[in-house]
C-alpha cells in the first residue's frame, strides 16, 4: 500500500500521461466522509482483455521495461480499496481513452491519510509527459463547499517553463495557497474501528 492517498493519484495519473493522450482531467473531491478521485484521458484506451489484465500486478505491455515483468500501479490501488472497504473502477474504450475512479472511506481505520495535495499537483503539473492537463479540487462538508481548478497551459503562460527551480518554487507557493483556501471547510473525522 502507498503511504498516502495522493500517492495513488500521482501514480495513476502518470499512466494517463503515458497513454498517448492529448488531454488528461483529474478530479479530486472530498465529500463528507469520502475522498474521491477520477482520472480521465483521451489516450489509446484498452480492450476488455487488457482491462482484466491490468489488475494483475505483473502485467505490463513490455515496452517500457523489456527485460522485466513489472505492472501498472492499478493493482496497488485495487488492493488498497479492497482492504479499506472502499471503491475502485476502471472503464476504457480503444482509441477513446480510459477513466479510473476511486472512492475512499476516510472513516475506515485502514484508509491511508490523504497526504500532500499541492505537492502532488506540483509533481503532476511539472511532469514533462503531460500535454494538456487540468485538475479540479473540490470539498463539500458540513462546513460548506469550495473548489479550485488549475490548468497546466494557464500556469505555463504565467510562469514560463515548469522545470526551472525558481518557477517550481512559485508554482508550489501558488498550489499551497489554492489548497489553503479550502482549509475552512476541512473537518476532523471520527475513525470507525
Amino acid at each position: 500500500m502507498h503511504r498516502y492517498l495522493t500517492d495513488y493519484i500521482l501514480d495513476i495519473t502518470q499512466n494517463a500521461f503515458e497513454a498517448n493522450s492529448n488531454h488528461v482531467w483529474l478530479k479530486i473531491s472530498e465529500v463528507d466522509r469520502y475522498f474521491r478521485f477520477s482520472i480521465r484521458d483521451d489516450g489509446k484506451g484498452m480492450d476488455q482483455d487488457e482491462l482484466t489484465m491490468v489488475l494483475d500486478p505483473y502485467y505490463t505491455d513490455g515496452i517500457k521495461h523489456s527485460k522485466r515483468k513489472v505492472g501498472l500501479g492499478i493493482p496497488f490501488l485495487a488492493q488498497a480499496t479492497k482492504e479499506t472497504n472502499s471503491r475502485f473502477g476502471i472503464t476504457s474504450t480503444v482509441g477513446k481513452g480510459t477513466e479510473v475512479h476511486s472512492s475512499f472511506d476516510l472513516c475506515n481505520v485502514d484508509t491511508p491519510p490523504i497526504g500532500d495535495i499541492p505537492g502532488t499537483l506540483l509533481a503532476l503539473m511539472s511532469n514533462p509527459q503531460a500535454n494538456w492537463f487540468e485538475c479540479e479540487r473540490e470539498i463539500k462538508t458540513v462546513k460548506g463547499t469550495s473548489s479550485y481548478t488549475v490548468n497546466k497551459d494557464e500556469l505555463i503562460e504565467v510562469l514560463g517553463n515548469l522545470e526551472n527551480a525558481s518557477n517550481l518554487i512559485l508554482l508550489r507557493d501558488f498550489l499551497r495557497n489554492q489548497e489553503d483556501s479550502l482549509k475552512d471547510y476541512y473537518v476532523k473525522r471520527q475513525l470507525i474501528f
Binding site: G119, A123, N161, E163, A165, S166, I169, R172
Partner: peptide, 23 residues
C-alpha cells in the same frame, strides 16, 4: 515526492535558480 519537495526547499533556502528539476 518528498525528495522533489526537499530539493525545492534547499534551492529556495540557498537562492539557487539555475537548476531545472524534471521527472
Amino acid at each position: 515526492k518528498i525528495v522533489l519537495d526537499e530539493f525545492l526547499d534547499q534551492f529556495e533556502k540557498r537562492g539557487i535558480t539555475n537548476i531545472s528539476v524534471t521527472q
